[in-house]
């Protein structure tokens, strides 16, 4: 397993290298000039040129890449063109909201979706199955921003139970932290509930047709034990895979939810940086996302060892 781990970690290096080169080149080839953005609407061509020089954007692309890549190898992601803060500082500020939202969403989704999926599989084809899958389709179909606004209107504006927007860091108190996370997590989890419930239903339904389930039932085990210990446990691999991918997607940023609830996460940072052509920030966050995807996939692969003893690396 150690050899597998080492080879997987080594294989991330060319992936990250390709991502770095591709992102760097794409940004330089895309129309848009950060100097013009910084200068503002009333700046003249000369002023824009001065700013471009001061940012080093007048240098050849190869030289710019060499400087940036050399810094990255030393662990320096550079400084934002706009904020006069390092990219690492910007990412650090945005990481907590994104991680908190992602984890909360996944926890809510798993806690709701897995039992629903198991129930639907257990009553496969029955009214319970059809109802749950109907809700699942609805969950897939309803746009996140529509659900978000509806929840804000009802829970925050009409009932006054929870705040409309914003994020409070854990350091500002557990209460405010939770209050600000409930609505966005609920909103975002709906689509993941739908996704995970469907995958769970399919996997458990398949497991329920296996011989070992028939044996378990023949032995007189309670149905709950058959469902959880025998069917669900053996259906875990696809469920964990989809949960892992969901988590990776959430870390990559959920821009619409972050905008509707004004959460200062990595998704909004990425979009803002793209719109402003803040090259160092875009490059930094995309590299971070790549690392996150690689690590999450590695963890998923490792989890298979525990979930299915037949799998060996």
């Amino acid at each position: 397993m150690l050899r597998f781990l080492a080879s997987r970690l080594l294989s991330t290096i060319p992936v990250l290298l390709i991502v770095a080169v591709a992102v760097f080149l794409l940004l330089r080839l895309t129309p848009g000039d950060p100097a013009a953005v910084i200068a503002g609407d009333m700046a003249t061509t000369e002023q824009i040129e001065e700013i471009r020089t001061s940012l080093g954007l007048d240098k050849p692309i190869v030289v710019q890449f060499g400087i940036w890549f050399g810094n990255v190898l030393r662990g320096d992601l550079g400084e934002s063109f706009f904020f006069k803060l390092t990219v690492a500082e910007l990412i650090a500020q945005r990481l907590e909201p994104t991680l908190a939202l992602a984890l909360c969403t996944i926890v809510v989704a798993v806690v709701v979706a897995v039992p629903l999926g198991v129930l639907a599989a257990w009553r496969h084809g029955g009214w319970l199955d059809r109802t749950l899958m109907g809700f699942s389709t609805l969950g897939f179909s309803i746009p996140v921003f529509v659900l978000g606004y509806l929840l804000i209107w009802l829970v925050s504006l009409k009932l006054g139970w929870l705040p409309v927007q914003g994020y409070r860091r854990l350091g500002e108190g557990v209460g405010p932290f939770i209050r600000h996370l409930i609505l966005p997590s609920l909103t975002l989890s709906v689509i993941y509930v739908a996704l995970i419930a469907r995958v769970t239903r399919a996997a458990v339904a398949e497991a329920l047709t296996e011989d070992f389930v028939r044996t378990a039932r023949a032995k007189g085990l309670p149905e709950s034990r058959v469902l959880i210990r025998h069917a669900l446990a053996n259906a875990a691999v696809p469920i964990v895979t989809v949960i892992g991918i969901g988590l990776a997607l959430l870390i990559g940023g959920v821009v619409v939810t972050e905008s509707v609830f004004s959460i200062p996460g990595l998704g909004r940072l990425t979009v803002d940086a793209v719109l402003a052509r803040d090259f160092p920030t875009i490059q930094g966050v995309i590299l971070l996302f790549s690392v996150a995807y690689v690590l999450v996939n590695l963890l998923i692969d490792l989890s298979y060892l525990f979930l299915d003893p037949r799998i060996r690396y």
Binding site: Y149, I152, W153, V164, G166, S259, V260, S262
Partner: peptide, 18 residues
């Protein structure tokens, strides 16, 4: 200065007194 980019969220936050 509370940075809220979405216009509707701004309005909701103002109505709620946030």
């Amino acid at each position: 200065w509370v940075i809220i980019k979405d216009a509707q969220t701004q309005a909701n936050a103002l109505a709620a007194g946030e």
